[in-house]
């Protein structure tokens, strides 16, 4: 009954519908603002321009040094572009921000690829990915939350929130010449160094070129 209300019975068809929406755009540009909260890396807000061209060419134009997730941005669209290259199965429903989504687990046919599992929370009515959890062979899991606005009809988000684990760095004191600096171990404001990295990308002023 519920699946009938949601309108999709076939998970692969649902993923294909999402991709068709994404594929309607040949390329786009948008102003971007990046806010990063990464353990062991403190940086200010960065502004720039994001340029994307199908299938997976992503370019960031910024005067500042920008940090983006290595995976989970452009590679995801490429991954779902070939429906014969993966198997999709429904794994339940979940409400995200008031939207009832269908959870789809996507397993790649090629077991030697970098992406080994994708879990998608899809709004079946609007055919939009609301959340994705992408598990990579070498770099762990990247969770992405999508917020849509002006470009919803093309499946282009206004905001992406990436959350992932990053490996801690060990920087020798000799390399930093920071020999006498001793941090207060009781500093209550200090953030947990093992927390996941969070990168928020806000996109606006889209310039979309359709196929």
């Amino acid at each position: 009954m519920l699946t009938q209300v949601l309108g999709q019975d076939n998970p692969e068809q649902l993923v294909r519908g999402v991709y068709a929406k994404m594929r309607s755009v040949n390329s786009y540009e948008a102003d971007m603002r990046i806010d990063a909260d990464i353990p062991m890396l403190r940086m200010q807000q960065v502004e720039g321009r994001l340029v994307f061209k199908q299938p997976d060419k992503l370019q960031v134009k910024s005067k500042s040094l920008a940090v983006l997730p290595k995976q989970g941005f452009a590679d995801f669209a490429k991954f779902i572009s070939d429906t014969s290259a993966f198997t999709a199965v429904f794994s339940g429903e979940e409400k995200l921000g008031g939207v009832l989504t269908r959870m789809v687990q996507v397993l790649p046919g090629n077991s030697r690829g970098e992406l080994i599992l994708a879990k998608l929370w899809i709004d079946p009515v609007r055919k939009l990915v609301m959340r994705s959890e992408l598990t990579y062979r070498n770099s762990g899991t990247v969770m992405v939350d999508y917020t849509y606005g002006s470009q919803e009809k093309y499946g282009l988000p206004d905001k992406l929130r990436f959350s992932m684990d990053v490996r801690n760095m060990k920087i020798p004191k000799a390399m930093t010449a920071d020999l006498h600096q001793k941090k207060d171990k009781t500093d209550k404001d200090a953030k947990d160094p093992n927390r996941p990295a969070v990168i928020e990308v806000v996109l606006k002023n889209y310039k979309v070129i359709l196929n």
Binding site: S62, P69, K70, V142, V166, R167, M169
Partner: peptide, 13 residues
């Protein structure tokens, strides 16, 4: 220094 971070992050610039 950045090798650990570059496993998950991409530095543009």
């Amino acid at each position: 220094i950045t090798a650990g971070l570059e496993e998950s992050l991409l530095f543009e610039g």
